[in-house]
Nucleic acid binder design. Structure first.
Length: 480
DNA sequence: TGAAATGTTGGGGCG
DNA sequence: ACGCCCCAACATTTC
């Protein structure tokens, strides 16, 4: 009669706007809260190194929040379905509540669980990772959208995302002995070397940190978001991405907080639009599970990539000789995050100037980004590579010098992350190899010693990329 | 959520 | 003072 409810936490590591907890509280039955670290599948998309750091702190935080309500977070490691069934056996729980995921691995776990349980246990699936459900935003032909803008319009025509669920405060923990791993045993934190030692000065994982970032953003930059979001040299973005990815805050909470607290402005509209991009990426991944591995546009499988470990390492370590690219890659390494404008620039450079397969860049981002999200990562890399669903009609090659001048006009972003160039003036900082000798000398820069010369000449690389593209066109015209 | 190529304009140097 | 050329600076077209 009073069997406990198993509340299975996934990408929703929060207590507020948590419909599964609210529903469990309403039932009056005791709850067992569990998080499972599932490294069992053989895919390459396990938690990346940076995400493991975040996960550790997020779980630690969630666990403390739970203790305040006399709840306990059970940690298990292993195959999700096996562990859930094990806990069912150990506790005689008769329901599992959880939030739906949209990635291939998340959905396959849900499917396996449903099959294994075969209706013996009540499964209740909640929806709160996205604003809109990918299987409900469909075009006139009842097909998923492949282009962002129509998708966006269709979303805005839907019912407004409902208000956040009130936080449950009368939950009863199922107080019986139940094994939990200790978080430290999972060794999610890096050591030898601890490359994340500096992350705490940029990030506060956990629900409170998420709301702090949101409040700051709403009372500050949001009204100018449309103007500032492309400027890596100023604080113009919300920095919510890792919090969102781990579900420490839900997109609905963000949506409603913005609508209720911020003055209507072009900045607000632009930000909401970006939130919907997140839905769009998940929509693509949901309907196209191979999205992280294969080009959406088939003809791109004929693109003559030139994998090159040496150049790839220079890109990873921020030693390409293009300051805006190197600044971005070093920001990523130092902080686990990179400004979105710069992500596009470094991605374009890898894929178009170096002709290195986009999947390699995707994997590096997956390992180093705290906000690494399968859908967003795949959609963004495919977009830059030109093989995505929403590709532009022309082949877009970013010019790293022009992008630098345009979006880091004073060079402050470069100075912050490429300190060897910090004395260079704005005129030369995005192309130090073009600076006169006396300028370099007075700034204490010896090219190829203090800072590399460009690993490729952009003008030549650009022409090479256009030539490479001819293969794709020929393949397409040959009728696939 | 580009940028190169091409076209147009207008000011200044200069014969 | 005039016409001519040069070439920034800006606008439009094209991929």
């Amino acid at each position: 009669m009073n069997a406990p409810i198993l509340c299975w936490f996934r990408h929703d590591l929060r207590m507020a706007d948590q419909p599964m907890l609210a529903a469990a509280a309403k039932s009056g039955r005791p709850v067992i809260c569990v998080y499972i670290l599932d490294d069992s599948d053989s895919t390459q998309w396990k938690h990346g190194s940076a995400r493991r750091w975040w996960l550790h702190h997020s779980l630690s935080n969630l666990s403390i929040s739970m203790e305040k309500q006399k709840l306990r977070l059970i940690l298990r490691r292993g195959n999700s379905v096996n562990e859930l069934i094990r806990i069912i056996d150990e506790t005689k729980a008769n329901s599992i509540y959880f939030s739906r995921q949209y990635d291939p691995y998340g959905t396959s776990i849900e499917k396996n669980l449903t099959e294994r349980l075969n209706n013996t246990i009540k499964l209740k699936r909640f929806r709160n990772y996205l604003l809109f459900e990918p299987d409900q935003v469909l075009n006139g032909k009842n097909e998923p959208y492949k282009v962002f803008t129509p998708f966006y319009r269709a979303c805005l025509r839907q019912t407004t995302p409902h208000a956040p669920t009130p936080t449950a405060n009368n939950l009863k923990n199922w107080n019986h002995a139940l094994h939990s791993d200790s978080l430290m045993e999972w060794k999610l934190l890096p050591s030898n070397p601890d490359w994340a030692s500096n992350f705490h000065s940029y990030w506060t994982p956990g629900e409170a940190g998420a709301h702090q970032k949101l409040d700051q953003f709403i009372s500050g930059e949001i009204t100018k978001y449309d103007l500032l979001r492309n400027r890596p040299d100023v604080t113009g973005t919300s920095h919510l991405s890792p919090h969102l990815h781990f579900g420490e805050i839900s997109p609905r909470q963000i949506w409603h907080a913005i609508i209720n607290k911020a003055n209507p402005s072009a900045g607000v509209d632009a930000y909401i639009r970006q939130l919907v991009w997140r839905d769009f990426a998940n929509n693509l991944l949901f309907h196209w599970p191979q999205f992280p591995e294969e080009p959406f546009r088939k003809e791109y499988s004929s693109f003559p990539w030139k994998p090159n470990e040496k150049l790839f390492k220079k890109w990873q370590s921020g030693q390409t000789g293009y300051p805006i690219v190197d600044a971005g890659m070093r920001e990523l390494w130092s902080t686990g995050w990179m400004h979105n404008r710069v992500r596009m620039i470094v991605a374009s450079f890898l894929v178009k100037d170096l002709l290195i397969p986009w999947q390699q860049g995707e994997s590096w981002f997956w390992d180093t980004l705290l906000d690494a999200d399968l859908a967003n990562n795949a959609a963004s890399w495919q977009w830059v590579a030109g093989c995505g669903a929403d590709a532009s009609p022309y082949y877009r090659i970013f010019n790293p010098i022009l992008q630098g001048k345009k979006f880091d006009p004073l060079g402050d972003y470069v100075r912050q992350w490429v300190p060897e160039l910090k004395n260079l003036d704005a005129k030369h900082i995005h192309s130090p190899w073009l600076a006169p000798h006396h300028v370099l000398k007075s700034c204490g820069i010896r090219l190829n010693r203090d800072y590399p010369k460009p690993v490729v000449d952009h003008d030549i690389a650009r022409k090479r990329a256009l030539t490479a593209l001819e293969k794709v066109k020929a393949y397409k015209n040959s009728g696939k």
